[in-house]
């Protein structure tokens, strides 16, 4: 029935999550960091759909719907923050923003 083992999906998802976390930690551009967070959310979604398929339970796919809603909300709020940051500081590079750094 399942010709592809579940582990393949889990490892693929772990690799995508790893790439996303490297992007978050290594890039400076706030919009690219934002896109890397979307990458990490999608890696988790792939894990959830994989488990949902292999355990025959729909709860995983409902969870993916919730994650997608949170990602959409995060997109709206995150981009509004970037917009207001650019308006106040004329930059989107996070190492030039040090208002809350001690």
């Amino acid at each position: 029935m399942h010709s592809i083992p579940l582990n393949y999906y889990l490892i693929l998802s772990a690799v995508i999550f790893l790439i996303g976390s490297i992007g978050v930690l290594a890039r400076r551009n706030a919009i690219i960091i934002f896109m890397c967070i979307e990458l990490m959310l999608n890696a988790v979604n792939l894990t959830l759909v994989g488990f949902s398929r292999f355990f025959g339970d729909q709860a995983g796919q409902i969870m993916v719907l919730m994650v997608m809603t949170v990602a959409a909300a995060e997109a709206a709020v995150g981009l509004a923050i970037v917009l207001s940051l650019f308006r106040n500081k004329q930059t989107v590079y996070l190492d030039e923003v040090n208002l809350m750094k001690w």
Partner: peptide, 12 residues
């Protein structure tokens, strides 16, 4: 991982 839902929900 051993899948208990082996062919459980084909149109899941």
């Amino acid at each position: 991982f051993n899948a208990p839902g082996e062919g459980g929900l084909p149109s899941g």
